[in-house]
Design a binder for these strands. Structure first.
Length: 899
RNA sequence: GGGUUCAUAGCUCAGUUGGUUAGAGCGCAUCGUUGACAUCGAUGAGGUCGGCAGUUCGAAUCUGCCUGAACCCA
C-alpha cells in the first residue's frame, strides 16, 4: 500500500549516488544472492575469474553486466540462482608485477629464495587482491560472495595437483625436449596460445656462403642473421635446378667458418628469398624438424634471457637484437652481405611481456590433446553445448582439429608447483607425487635404491600454466576434491553442469575449449550448456581500449557520472551479440536520461496523490477502458518478445523493447491519458492505482538491466518487507489475453492523433490553440470504437470540439488528411495557408501513387498471381484497394481546395 | 599463405524460413518551458541495402565473381 503520509518533496533529478550503495548493502545484508542447494532447479554461472591483482576495466564491465542480467532474470524466474565469483592468480602477469615492484626496491628476484619471493607475492595479492571484486559490487553484480574462490587457495591448489596426477596416470601428461615458445623477458616457456603474431616491417638479409674447394658461393636469405652463428646446414629444394649441382657439397658459414653440408628437402620454398635456406635447428621450429630428419647438429647460441651464449663465439653476452646489428656490419665488412630487402613479416610476441618470442629447445611438461579434444569438439558441433552466436563454432572446430600438445610448465614461482620429484639427472629419473614422503617411496621403488634419502630428491622448480588451473573452475569451485574422489559432492551434483558462460571470443582457446575438455575428462559431462561470446570494447575509432593507449574511460568514474544503471544500459545498448562494441559515453548518458525519465514518471504519479489517502497498485484493468487494455496488451506482447530475445541471447534487443515500452508507451501515452481532465486536478484514484500497478510490472521487467533504480522505485511505491524486495520478486506472469482488438483501436487513435499533430506543426499552429476536429471514419464499426475513445483525443490534443461521423462533409478552409481510409478535417478559418495545405496533400498523393504503381505492376504480372501463395496475392489486392480508396479521398480533398 | 565473418540512413546497428511503402537509437532541422521530466515534448528531413552478373513471378535476404574491412590460425 502506498501512502502519502510521509511524502516529501521528490527532487527533480534522479541521483543514483543516493540509492545505489544503499540498495547493494541491503541486498547483501539480506543475503539475497547466496544460494544453497534445494529442490528448485538450479541456474549456475561461474564468473570468468579476473586477475587477482587486476582492476576493473571496460571489458570486465561489459562481461559482468551481461552475466548479471542473465542471473537476475533467472532469479526472478524462480531458479535457484548461483553466480560464483572469484579471481585467478594470473601466474605470469602477477609474477611480472611482483618482480617489477621488487626491482623498484632494489631487490633482484634471483637474490631471493622461492619462499621469500612467494611471501612478497602473497603480500602483493593480499594488498591488491579482491579490489576488483569490490568494484563489481558497484556495478550491481549479484554474485554469491560467500562462495568467492581463488585459484591459488589451498583447496583449489589441491585440485590442480590432483588433476596433474590423474592425467599423468592416464598417460596424458609427459615430459619432453621440444621446441617451445620462449619468452626471454619472463624467462619462461609459453603455450602456443600465449603468442601473438604481429605483422612488422623487417629486413630480409641475403648472405653468401662460400662453397668449400670452389670459387662459387651460395646465397641464403634470412630475417635473423645473428642465428647464422648457429647454422648447421644449408638446404635447397631437390627440384631447384639452380642448386642441384651443389647438393652434397660443403658450405662455409661466414664469421665462424664452420663447414656444413648442403642438403635437399621439399620443405624449402623455391620462390621465397633466394630459394636457399640456412638451417638453425636450435632456433626455429621448422629448422628443428629438418635437423631431426637429417640428423644435424644442434647448436643453441642463446641464453635464457635472449643474450648470445659463449658457444656462438662472437658477440657473447650481447642481446640478440644488438647482435643482429653487429653481425650485419661485420658481414658487410667481409663482403658476405649481398643485399638487404624490406619485407613484411609476422613475428611472435609474448601476450604478457610483449617480448619477441624465441623458439627454444627445452625440456618441458606437456599435456596430450588428441583424446581430450575429441568429446570437446563433438559436443560443441552437435550443440550439446551451444555457442552464441553460433558462428564461433567454426573457429572452435578449426582450432580443435589442428590442436597440438599443450606446454603446461612455466619457469615461474607464482602458481601450482609441478608435483614431480627428481632423484637423478636422467630424463626419466623422476616420480609424480603429492608430498616429499610419497615421492621418496616412489623414487625408491622406481630407482631400486632403497637407501635413497629425502635430501637426495628435489621437486621440480616450475609451476603450471594458469589455464591448467582455470580449466577446472566450473567444477572445483563447488567441489575441490572431485578428481581425487572420482565423483562429485552434493554441491557439484546440484550446480553442475552450469548454465551460461559469458566471455570474449579471444579466450575461446585459452579457457572455453579447455574447460570443455576438462569437463568431459573428469565428470563425463559438459561444464555449461551455453557460451555467450560478447565483443571487445573499442573506442569510437575502433581501437581496442587499453591502458597503454589511454583511450579507456575509468569504469568507476562512469558509474559515478551516470550511475551503475545508466552505465549498464549504455554498455548494453552498444552491444549486439557477438559483435565488437564501439563504446560511446553518449550511450551512458542516454542510460542516465532514461533513469531520470523513470524517476520523473514516479515523481509525477506521486504528485497526484492526496495527502492521507492510501493507494493500492493494481493490474486489474477496467474492461471498458481501451487505454488500460492497450497498455496491458503491450506489456504482454513485450514479455513474449523479451522471452524470445533472451532465448537467443539478444540482450540489447530485449533492453530496447522494455526501454521503449517504458518511455514511449507508458510515459508518453499511458500516463498522459491517465492525467486528470483539468489542469490542477489530481489524477483519479483508480487511474493512479492502475498506473502504479503497471509501473510495478515494468520495474520487474527492467530490473535485470537496471537493478538499482527499479528497486528504489519498487520500494517507494509500497512499503516492502525483506521478503518482498524486487531483487527476489517474481518475473511477471504471461497471460494468454493480448487484447489485440483494443491494441489495434488504440493504435489507430495514436496514428490519428499524430496526424492531427502533424497538421498543427505544418500549419504553424500554437500547440495550445484549441481545435475543432471532424473525423470521418471509414466505417460504422470504427466510428463507434473511436467515439468510445473520444476522451483519449481530448487528453492528448487541445480539443474544442470533436465529432465522428461517417457522413461528414469536409468544411471549407480546413486542413485534411487520410489515415487508413478514415478522413480527418481540421477547420482552420482564416488560419489556413492554402498553399501549404495543397502541398501537404499533393505530397501524400505522390507517395501513394508511386506505391500503387508498384502494387499494380505486381498484380498485372501473371507469373506473380499464378505462382505466389494465395495469401500473398490477397495481401497485395488489399493493399491496392486501400491505396485506391485513400487516393480517391485525397484527390477529392485536393479538388475542393482548388475549387 | 589457410580459414572465418562482415559490408543497410551522417554514426552505431535491427531486418529470424526470399513476399515491408527497408526499421530503431544517436545525430540533424523546425516548433514548444505558467506544475513529472529541456537529462524533456511534438513534428520532420535522411537509404537506388558495397559493385557486377545470375537463380526466381518476386532478392537487402539465395548463388557466383569483384572490391573493401575485421578477426582467427600458421
Amino acid at each position: 500500500m502506498s501512502s502519502t503520509d510521509n511524502l516529501q518533496d521528490i527532487p527533480k533529478h534522479y541521483d543514483p549516488s543516493e540509492t545505489e550503495d544503499k540498495w547493494y548493502s541491503y541486498w547483501e545484508e539480506n543475503n539475497y544472492f547466496h544460494s544453497e542447494p534445494d529442490d528448485r532447479e538450479s541456474f549456475t554461472v561461474v564468473i570468468p575469474p579476473p586477475n587477482v591483482t587486476g582492476v576493473l576495466h571496460m571489458g570486465h564491465m561489459l562481461n559482468n553486466t551481461i552475466q548479471d542480467v542473465l542471473v537476475r532474470r533467472a532469479r526472478m524466474k524462480g531458479f535457484n540462482t548461483c553466480w560464483v565469483p572469484g579471481t585467478d592468480h594470473a601466474s605470469i602477469a602477477t609474477e611480472a608485477k611482483v618482480v617489477q615492484k621488487l626491482r623498484n626496491k632494489g631487490i633482484k628476484k634471483s637474490d631471493l629464495s622461492r619462499d621469500e619471493f612467494l611471501k612478497h607475492a602473497w603480500e602483493w595479492t593480499d594488498e591488491h587482491g579482491g579490489i576488483i571484486l569490490q568494484q563489481l559490487r558497484k556495478l550491481g553484480a549479484s554474485c554469491d560472495w560467500q562462495r568467492t574462490r581463488f585459484t591459488l587457495e589451498d583447496e583449489l591448489y589441491e585440485s590442480v595437483i590432483d588433476c596433474f596426477i590423474e592425467l599423468y596416470d592416464r598417460g596424458y601428461i609427459y615430459r619432453g625436449q621440444r621446441m617451445v615458445n620462449w619468452d626471454p623477458a619472463a624467462q619462461t616457456a609459453l603455450s602456443d596460445e600465449e603468442v601473438i603474431h604481429k605483422e612488422v616491417q623487417s629486413k630480409l638479409y641475403h648472405v653468401r656462403y662460400k662453397i668449400k674447394d670452389s670459387d662459387e658461393y651460395i646465397t641464403i636469405a634470412t630475417t635473423r642473421p645473428e642465428t647464422i652463428l648457429a647454422d648447421t646446414a644449408v638446404c635447397v629444394n631437390p627440384d631447384d635446378e639452380r642448386y642441384t649441382h651443389l647438393i652434397g657439397k660443403t658450405a662455409i658459414i661466414p664469421m665462424v667458418n664452420r663447414e656444413v653440408k648442403i642438403i635437399a628437402d621439399d620443405y624449402v620454398d623455391k620462390e621465397y628469398g633466394t630459394g636457399c635456406l640456412k638451417i638453425t635447428p636450435a632456433h626455429d621450429q621448422n629448422d628443428y624438424e629438418i635437423g631431426v630428419k637429417h640428423g644435424l647438429e644442434i647448436i643453441d647460441m642463446l641464453n635464457a634471457d635472449g643474450t648470445v651464449a659463449e658457444v656462438a663465439g662472437h658477440y657473447i653476452g650481447k642481446d640478440r637484437f644488438e647482435a643482429r646489428k653487429l653481425i650485419v656490419k661485420d658481414l658487410e665488412k667481409q663482403e658476405s652481405l649481398v643485399k638487404v630487402e624490406e619485407m613484411a613479416n609476422k613475428v611472435g610476441y609474448s601476450e604478457r611481456t610483449d617480448a619477441v618470442i624465441e623458439p627454444r629447445l627445452s625440456l618441458q611438461w606437456f599435456c596430450k590433446m588428441d583424446e581430450l579434444s575429441k568429446p570437446a569438439l563433438d559436443n560443441v558441433m552437435n550443440d550439446e553445448i551451444q555457442f552464441h552466436p553460433a558462428k564461433f563454432k567454426n573457429s572452435y572446430k578449426h582450432w580443435m582439429e589442428n590442436i597440438r600438445d599443450w606446454c603446461i610448465s612455466r619457469q615461474l614461482w607464482w602458481g601450482h608447483r609441478i608435483p614431480a620429484w627428481y632423484y637423478g639427472d636422467g630424463e626419466e629419473e623422476y616420480v609424480i607425487a603429492r608430498t616429499a614422503e610419497e615421492a621418496l617411496e616412489k623414487a625408491k621403488e622406481k630407482s631400486g635404491r632403497s637407501d635413497l634419502k629425502e635430501s637426495e630428491i628435489h621437486q621440480d622448480e616450475d609451476v603450471l600454466d594458469t589455464w591448467f588451473s582455470s580449466w577446472l573452475w566450473p567444477m572445483s569451485v563447488f567441489d575441490p576434491d572431485f578428481i581425487k574422489n572420482k565423483k562429485g559432492n552434493k554441491e557439484l551434483e546440484y550446480y553442475y553442469p552450469t548454465q551460461d558462460l559469458v566471455t570474449a571470443p579471444e579466450i575461446m582457446f585459452f579457457w572455453v575449449a579447455r574447460m570443455i575438455m576438462a569437463g568431459y575428462a573428469f565428470t563425463d559431462e559438459k561444464p555449461f550448456s551455453n557460451v555467450y561470446y560478447h565483443g571487445i570494447v573499442r573506442d569510437e575509432k575502433r581501437r581496442k581500449m587499453s591502458k597503454s593507449l589511454g583511450n579507456s574511460p575509468d569504469p568507476l568514474k562512469l558509474i559515478e557520472k551516470y550511475g551503475a544503471d545508466g552505465t549498464r544500459v549504455g554498455m548494453l545498448f552498444a552491444s549486439p551479440a557477438g559483435n565488437d562494441l564501439l563504446f560511446d559515453e553518449a550511450l551512458c548518458e542516454q542510460g542516465r536520461n532514461f533513469s531520470n525519465k523513470i524517476w520523473n514518471a514516479y515523481r509525477f504519479l506521486t504528485m497526484n496523490m492526496e495527502k492521507g489517502v492510501d493507494y493500492n497498485p493494481t493490474t486489474i484493468i477496467d474492461p471498458k477502458n481501451v487505454a488500460d487494455k492497450w497498455m496491458m496488451g503491450r506489456i504482454q506482447t513485450t514479455l513474449r518478445e523479451m522471452e524470445d530475445d533472451f532465448s537467443k541471447y539478444r540482450l540489447n534487443e530485449a533492453l530496447k523493447k522494455i526501454y521503449s515500452l517504458v518511455w514511449d508507451d507508458f510515459c508518453d501515452w499511458y500516463i498522459e491519458v491517465c492525467k486528470a481532465d483539468q489542469y490542477g486536478e489530481n489524477m483519479p484514484k483508480e487511474n493512479l492505482e492502475r498506473a502504479l500497478g503497471f509501473f510495478e510490472m515494468l520495474m520487474k521487467m527492467l530490473h535485470p538491466f537496471m537493478p538499482f533504480i527499479t528497486e528504489e522505485i519498487w520500494q517507494r511505491i509500497q512499503e516492502r518487507s525483506t521478503e518482498e524486495a524486487l531483487t527476489i520478486s517474481s518475473w511477471p506472469e504471461m497471460q494468454d489475453e493480448l487484447h489485440r482488438d483494443s491494441v489495434s483501436i488504440f493504435q489507430t487513435v495514436q496514428t490519428q492523433i499524430s496526424s492531427i499533430r502533424n497538421i498543427q506543426a505544418e500549419m504553424n499552429l500554437s500547440p495550445k490553440a484549441e481545435l475543432n476536429i471532424i473525423i470521418k471514419p471509414k466505417n460504422g464499426e470504427l466510428s463507434e470504437q473511436l467515439e468510445s475513445a473520444e476522451w483519449v483525443f481530448r487528453k492528448l490534443l487541445p480539443v474544442e470540439s470533436i465529432s465522428f461521423d461517417v457522413n461528414a462533409d469536409k468544411p471549407k478552409a480546413s486542413a485534411a488528411s487520410v489515415v487508413d481510409g478514415s478522413e480527418i478535417y481540421v477547420p482552420l478559418e482564416g488560419l489556413i495557408d492554402l498553399e501549404i495545405e495543397r502541398d501537404r496533400i499533393q505530397k501524400e498523393i505522390d507517395r501513394l501513387t508511386g506505391f500503387l504503381k508498384g502494387v499494380e505492376k505486381k498484380l498485372s504480372n501473371a507469373g506473380f498471381v499464378n505462382n505466389a501463395p494465395e495469401e500473398v496475392v490477397e495481401k497485395e489486392r488489399q493493399k491496392k484497394e486501400d491505396a485506391e480508396m485513400n487516393l480517391e479521398k485525397l484527390t477529392k480533398q485536393l479538388e475542393e481546395f482548388q475549387a
